[in-house]
Design a binder for these strands. Sequence first.
DNA 1: CCTTCTGGTTCATTCACTGAACCATGCGTA
DNA 2: TACGCATGGTTCAGTGAATGAACCAGAAGG
Lengths: 193, 193
Amino acid sequence: MSSLGELMGEYAGRVALGRYYEGQDCSLARALELLGERWTMLLVRDAFYGVRRYADFLAHLDIPRAVLADRLRTLTEAGVLARRRYSDSPPRDEYVLTDRGRELWAPFYLLSQWGERHLSAAGPRRLFAHADCGTLLDPTGACPRCGRLAPPEEIEMRPGPGQQDDHRTDPVSQALRRPRRLLQPLLPHHEPG
Amino acid sequence: MSSLGELMGEYAGRVALGRYYEGQDCSLARALELLGERWTMLLVRDAFYGVRRYADFLAHLDIPRAVLADRLRTLTEAGVLARRRYSDSPPRDEYVLTDRGRELWAPFYLLSQWGERHLSAAGPRRLFAHADCGTLLDPTGACPRCGRLAPPEEIEMRPGPGQQDDHRTDPVSQALRRPRRLLQPLLPHHEPG
DNA sequence: CCTTCTGGTTCATTCACTGAACCATGCGTA
DNA sequence: TACGCATGGTTCAGTGAATGAACCAGAAGG
């Protein structure tokens, strides 16, 4: 349906509706053609939280199956996610963030913090701390103690005071309410790669 | 059609399709309900570039008029943009970023830089420099010389080597190809209040 | 009175998302 | 061998949102 080559190449006059911003010669428009469709950013967010499997995305997002399959395909073709086999005897694949995908942490964190400040009635639902030293990150995503931006691998997510607003009962949501390191697989179902 | 109150309040079971992510108890989902619709983020980007008037957004974005009117209404109700009268004798209004809107600079800049690194074939189309000292910003949006994040008011935008890929001929695009301070009105049409 | 500028609204068409049903593979076990 | 089930999809009719062209209205200006 869509490939990175198509995304980076010439597509003058080809598609007029939907995901493309043809006339916009702008890198933000390019990023939004990939990430700006409905559900896509939430899917990447879940990947940071450790969700890796089709069924787990489905349980946590209430996303239509067809849309989920399409988004996983698009993000994989764009090199944001990688599809990886973690089991052979039942053949099972998982989707994990690539380096390119992990670089999205900072913009996602900042956008989320903006939403927290301006659109959330209760307090923060999730808190993010630098796992190495236990210090809560500042609104820019930096660790105040270490004085540098914390990469997602070093971040621990904890429930915050607004967590009570989370009414979801699926197993994925329950797992995500416990303190956990970002990018770590959600459940000890398997030992990846 | 939508208000900030509606956005922040309870809307359990009310809307199932379109812009809302009902089941998602997450501040990123809240932010995306407001900003994640088609065209909305590009509109905010243009506001950072100094675009303020309906006709100028229209000329620069090739956005359907009905969608533009809807997005301006939604962003204004959410307090991201403010509608301001800048002329009485022909009554004219403009849309300017509020404090809340200007806080979106950092996430937008980071997302745009990500797109620049991974989805743009040519070099950067636009360069951003700290106007006070003339130094180019680093990929996090900080001024390497001053050692701090540059707020949008202090940023100058200049054409970069990838600028040649910009084929737009409308007056707004032409104005945006010249070096300019962010948030400053696009054309000296008027002296805003 | 006629035209232009600006900032919209209306509406038929087209496209994307939704949700429910269905399908295929590969175990596990009886 | 059959049955059941977990996983990861595809198909498709129905719905809602985006598109784009046409139309509209207020206020100058000539």
